[in-house]
Amino acid sequence: MAAGKGKPVAAAAAGAPAGYTAVPVKLSEKQQSPHYLYVKEHKVREGTDNTYPPHRTLFVLNIPPYCTKACLSRLFSCCSSVQSVNVCEKPGPREKPEASKSKFFNLKTVPGFRVAYVVFKNPAGIQAAKSLSLQGPLVISSESHPVKTGIRKWIASYAAAVVDPAELKAEVDTFMQAYDQKIAEEEAKEEEEEGVPDEEGWVKVTRKGRRPGLPRTEAASLRVLEREKRKRARKELLNFYAWQHRETKRENIAQLRKKFEEDKQRIALMRAQRKFRPY
């Protein structure tokens, strides 16, 4: 495991890109070589993104896979009390949080190495976090808060995947009720607007009315175009004029030539690959 021991690894221990501070972190005391979290204050240009409060948000890079949101919050709580932690796959503005978090649907976990935005309650937390680099490596899994990995973790997640049917049913039912209600409202609204001109006098054609318009889909418009084309083709006379006859002959030869060229190219290629040695 002495890979590149002589290389600049040791020197890089405290090395960090401009603006960042490297914080060593490891799972347990047993682990010998730490990973490095790269932290800096989260700053963005004025007015572009304000999902995170300025001066209180710490941007953390390179979080190892076994380090969960809870762990992060615990690790940084030694600096200052942590208001929130948002872990995501890559840096960027926060995605819109799902309206209703479901226990059963759209379970998305962010795997592997991640980034996080840690919001402290107090701006002082940022400086304190940066100074962590001077101490020894942070330890993720402690006796009081063990982190499960390997077999234990998989057994736990297997257990978690077994759901209670009643609970699931209840959730589905509430969702569907809300959905049905929403649809009903929309329909009612459409019904109401049916045939009623707006302020400029336009009437919206819906599928509900007496004369439903064509659906505005790509397929439908393509179909219309196709029909047009076919109609035109039907009207045209083929092989009527002498020039048309000539044209088809010419076209035929051109096709043959093209095919011939293609074959020639293919053969040249095969010859290059020595495909003609039978044995």
Partner: peptide, 27 residues
């Protein structure tokens, strides 16, 4: 692009990133 990587100085000034192999092997 900092997943499992760490900083290393290639020449004196320039800082580059390389995979943190030893930590990864322990991972």
């Amino acid at each position: 692009n900092m997943k499992g990587r760490m900083m290393a100085s290639l020449s004196c000034e320039e800082l580059v990133t390389v995979p943190n192999v030893e930590a990864i092997l322990e991972d």
